[in-house]
Nucleic acid binder design. Sequence first.
DNA 1: TATTGTTATACTCTATAACTATA
DNA 2: TATAGTTATAGAGTATAACAATA
Lengths: 153, 153
Amino acid sequence: MQNTEKSESLVLSQFFPYRFSMLQQMISENIASVYTGEFDLSRHEWRVLAILGEQTGLSAKHISQLTSLEKMQISRAINRMKSNDLIYDAIDKNDKRFTLLFLTNKGQRIYHILVPRVLAREKDLLKALSMEEQQALNQLLDKLQHKAALLLK
Amino acid sequence: MQNTEKSESLVLSQFFPYRFSMLQQMISENIASVYTGEFDLSRHEWRVLAILGEQTGLSAKHISQLTSLEKMQISRAINRMKSNDLIYDAIDKNDKRFTLLFLTNKGQRIYHILVPRVLAREKDLLKALSMEEQQALNQLLDKLQHKAALLLK
DNA sequence: TATTGTTATACTCTATAACTATA
DNA sequence: TATAGTTATAGAGTATAACAATA
């Protein structure tokens, strides 16, 4: 029974969830500095912008599903983005409960400025890995994601 | 120049920092449910507990370096943990500016209850990968961590 | 009755900096 | 002057649930 101690001891710096969290924090800081700096967007606002740049005319509900933000967080983000003239909305004719959201010209302009910058940051980071390693990493993260989803059920 | 569009378009769901953040959130939720549930610890408190369980008699400053928490966050965490009788402190005889922190018996008991549980969660998660894959993942994350640290400078 | 989205509220977290005590 | 740690304060983010409008 001597080795139960080893298998049950915790070394925080080697604990996978801790290491993952540290790395995530560094990555997200690096990306956030792109959209907080010049355009003063919050993380939520950036996500809404990113998703509307990709596909316009979505409802808050739809955005929620695509970004895993809560409807309330989206409501707040949208409010601020509307007063900053980044998005406008229109009620869905087919179901008046839905409000469809669109980027304004200003919103689109900012989107097209930010996208190359965040992609450049992503690229810089991934330069640490060869193409093969990047593929391997993606596959490993997919597996973990799948497992994590199962464990949270 | 046709492919500049491809290289500069952002698909949020495939954007590495976004995917990483989603996975991190799932993992951390899974771990947090262990220490928030029965013992009502905050994330910061859990980190302080984890590090003091590993190595006792540290100063707040030292804990800060080991956990990348701010001294203020640690001060708050410690305060609550003291009133909950999880830790006690003693002034460093050699330099009275330092306060050394120790787990109480109760703190140690909780530590030894929580550690096997969080390690079991870690294990469950990593079961998604073979031993070889786990090693590969660790190496890839190390490389990314190193690069991310450089980029943040 | 159920759903979309807003609002109220209370709570937690965070960031900055002023403050104390020791060195 | 510099460092360890605490406290004050204001701002940001979060969670719960009540609410209005529509279906």
